[in-house]
Nucleic acid binder design. Sequence first.
DNA 1: AATCGAAGCAACCGCCGTCTC
DNA 2: CGAGACGGCGGTTGCTTCGAT
Length: 320
Amino acid sequence: MRKPEVVPGKENAEKNKYRKGLWSPEEDEKLMRYMLNNGQGCWSDIARNAGLQRCGKSCRLRWINYLRPDLKRGAFSPQEEELIVHLHSLIGNRWSQIASRLPGRTDNEIKNFWNSTLKKRLKNNLSSSPYSHESSDPRFDMMYGGIMAMQEHDIMSMNISMDSSSTSSSSSQLPFSATGHSSFDGSSMAFVDNNFQMASVAEATNGFLQAPGGGGCLTEMGMRMEERFRYGGLEGERSMEIEREVVCGPHEEMMNHPPLMNNKSSFGQYLGTNEQNLNVEEMFGDMGSHGHLQDSLKMGSNEWDLESFMQDISSLPHFL
DNA sequence: AATCGAAGCAACCGCCGTCTC
DNA sequence: CGAGACGGCGGTTGCTTCGAT
């Protein structure tokens, strides 16, 4: 935490107008009282009118992260942890989006929790066991161990499951779910799907092993699959281009070792074709008919609609 | 009791998108 | 249409706490 301080120097006069550092109880009280009486508005005005020598941004942050009455205090519940891990596997470091799925939790809180606790736990789980059997928390094995096992056993084919109609089986616990062998033992694991089949995972994993950082990224950090769907230029049609980005390791690993295969054609290579036009309903099954997602997919935007996606994944079963 | 390092967390920084003039 | 203000977000910093030695 930071001590309250005022930066000296004339050149910083503008900055000096505002206090920085820790909030005093008096400041908290001023802001709280003002917010409860007047509600939210322009944060610069709030700071001024509440009699605070803080910039609007600082007030906003304090309110959102600490003073808001609906904030939930205390440790994260196991369910919350699972949801964070699950959502992070889907959308990465979009903390505000993740926070929006956890009532009473802030993006900052979740971000801190992830960086200090969950990330470490994931790492420990991976280093303790390349396969999921011996690690302490099977949920993380599900997330990060499964694909490692695939690579290890050179599975030659797998299907991508978008079967969201199964709402209670283990197959629905991941965006790509393993059915049949939820333990991800690799020896007989297969990703099952109704719709399309990935021709050669071996080819894909070979690609990763050639990534900067070498195969180590697979064995040390596990692998993470991240999908991005692009749909554009197909107005009025349900077909869309799918761009699949497969990356290895947690986020920081991804930053260090950008994925080699991150474009449309590369995924086509995975599939053994140059391009895949996929039906949304086929892709998402029932999920696509839940409303927002399918609608958003038809909008002709070049980026998929995250908001809608987040709304739609609420219809999916949670991790446990 | 003192020291040190890791963990946890509050808050700042800088960037980006949106809005307003 | 461009500039500036503002809000939101993710990344990062640095302080406090706590446990181990």
